[in-house]
């Protein structure tokens, strides 16, 4: 296995198969917590940590985990890392822990993590699986941070708590509410898909 394959796997998670914008996985945390930018990056990095380590461990143990009990085994492994994240965050980042609340524990049932365990880590060597976890995790982080920046900018006029909108700007309360989350997610999804389709077409034309 060479460096090229690692890089390809890593970048795959960020662009071609971005979990939020291309695979449309993990919508629950995406919609629930993206009303401020700090939440997006905190949730994204916590999920990335869990993804990298669960992928790595599942890949290392893939010959020891019997096919029949792979699902409970995955859950035990994923839940362990989620609990680690939860305890560490509670101890050292109490403010973030308070805002993310129950959604930290709910990383356990984030379908991105489960999908990568089942579709990738269970069939691939450890290093490649860790690269996949890192790519997917950072892809998720980028996507929800982008969405949460847009929502915070429109809903509160700020990004990461710093004011960006001019004085006269009246914050649109709907942007930080769940309904606005749906609308903005849809628009962002459309924009990303449009850009991807256009670059695809250009590539084909160049051929």
């Amino acid at each position: 296995m060479d460096f090229k394959a690692l890089r390809k796997t890593f970048l795959n998670g960020i662009f071609n198969e971005n979990p939020t914008f291309r695979l449309v996985l993990g919508m629950c945390p995406t919609l629930a917590i993206t009303y401020q930018a700090s939440n997006g990056i905190g949730m994204g990095l916590a999920t990335t940590f869990v993804l990298v380590f669960s992928n790595l461990v599942i890949s290392l143990l893939r010959n020891l985990i019997p096919e029949k009990i792979r699902i409970p085994a995955f859950i035990v492994i994923i839940a362990t890392f989620v609990t680690v994240v939860e305890m560490v965050m509670h101890a050292f980042l109490p403010a973030l822990y308070d805002t993310l609340g129950v959604f930290i524990s709910l990383i356990v049932v984030n379908c991105i993590i489960f999908a990568r365990a089942e579709a990738f880590a269970f069939k691939n060597p450890p290093l490649l699986s860790a690269a996949d976890g890192l790519g997917m995790g950072l892809g998720f982080t980028l996507a929800i941070t982008l969405l949460s920046c847009i929502r915070e900018l429109l809903g509160s006029g700020t990004i990461f708590g710093t004011r960006f909108m001019p004085e006269w700007f009246e914050p649109m309360a709907i942007a930080v509410q769940p309904a606005g989350g749906f609308i903005l997610l849809g628009l962002t999804l459309a924009a990303v898909t449009g850009i991807a389709a256009r670059s695809q077409k250009r590539k084909e034309a160049a051929k």
Binding site: L61, P72, A73, V76, I77
Partner: peptide
């Protein structure tokens, strides 16, 4: 087997 996983966890 599952018990062992849980134990390590």
């Amino acid at each position: 087997r599952l018990m062992l996983f849980a134990l390590v966890a």
